[in-house]
């Protein structure tokens, strides 16, 4: 195990430690923005797997199988997912693990939202037989404990890989901030109740947003994890970028265009519910104005 400057550093140095030039790294998208550039910086070739709305944005064994070549080395597994809020249940992971074992691949499992699962407890892929030896698991305090600015994360995995990551870590930044490490120890010892409270508060906001989109008749798949919701905006005939820009200019509300998370995010926007319910209500009123106007324009 290695303590890092956020999950961000762990993603970067895990890729740098593991890939050789020309190796292929499988990246399911839409997903967090740093996987693809980090893979490129490490000299690998990113290979994108487009996750499908109709599969609830889960990764299927078939999609994985189809993307594998003899150059493939690592699968990045980004669940619970930013930006879609999708999760992978045990049965989904078992199907993935089978393909991973068959092709002798590694997994970089970014489980930074593990604590934020609303329908059932999160299952890690390392709990599937044979996966612990070939998985680098990434987690941190940014999401579970809302300690984003403290910049603290960690990576767990096979000793041989962690040792190589440790070298890069030492030469780049020496160590994760010790002030934050002391804070995190306290968070682990005494923070369970707060994590539980935050999960409940996020869940309330999640239900509120799902319901608000239903009322607005905005197509949206129900997220089960993380703190994002990813409604579809195709009906308006605007790109995600145009939608987000107009919404910002006309209603002064910022959302992230789905394309920030990969080309296949086109037609979606990401809304974060890390903000208070009061603020979300105002945002939803504005969104309703906005889409009513767009519908009237058509």
């Amino acid at each position: 195990m290695l303590v890092t400057v956020g999950g961000s550093e762990a993603i970067d140095i895990a890729l740098r430690a593991m890939v050789d030039p020309g190796d292929e790294v499988l990246i399911p998208q839409p997903s967090y923005v740093s996987y693809e550039p980090c893979a490129v910086l490490a000299g690998a070739k990113p290979v994108i797997i487009e996750l499908k709305h109709e599969n609830q944005f889960r990764l299927t064994a078939q999609e994985l199988e189809d993307a594998i070549t003899d150059k493939t080395k690592i699968l990045i597994l980004p669940f619970p997912n930013n930006p879609t809020g999708a999760i992978m249940e045990r049965k989904d992971l078992e199907a993935i693990a089978e393909v991973i074992l068959k092709h002798d691949l590694f997994v970089l499992s970014d489980e930074i939202y593990a604590e934020l699962c609303y329908t059932e407890k999160h299952v890690s892929i390392v709990n599937i037989d044979g996966m612990r030896e070939r998985t680098i698991l990434i987690n941190g305090f940014s999401k579970s404990h809302a300690m984003t600015g403290w910049r603290l994360g960690y990576a767990c995995g096979p000793k041989e890989i962690i040792e190589q990551m440790y070298k890069i870590h030492q030469f780049c930044i020496m160590c994760a901030p010790t002030t934050s490490q002391y804070a995190a120890i306290d968070a682990l010892k005494n923070g369970d109740e707060d994590v539980q409270m935050m999960r409940e508060a996020y869940n309330q906001r999640r239900r509120y947003l799902v319901h608000a989109f239903q009322e607005m008749k905005l197509e949206c798949f129900e997220p089960f994890g993380a703190f994002y919701i990813f409604p579809c905006i195709r009906e308006f005939g605007l790109t995600s970028d145009e939608f987000a820009t107009r919404f910002l200019n006309e209603e002064k509300v910022a959302v992230v265009p789905g394309t920030a998370f990969g080309d296949c995010g086109e037609g979606f926007i990401r809304i974060s519910y890390a903000y208070s319910l009061e603020k979300l209500k105002i945002a939803m009123e504005k969104l309703e104005h906005f889409i009513n106007r767009l519908r009237a324009e058509k």
Binding site: R205, R207, Y208
Partner: peptide, 8 residues
């Protein structure tokens, strides 16, 4: 009504 929604 809102209480019902957020608590599911």
């Amino acid at each position: 009504r809102e209480l019902a929604i957020i608590l599911g």
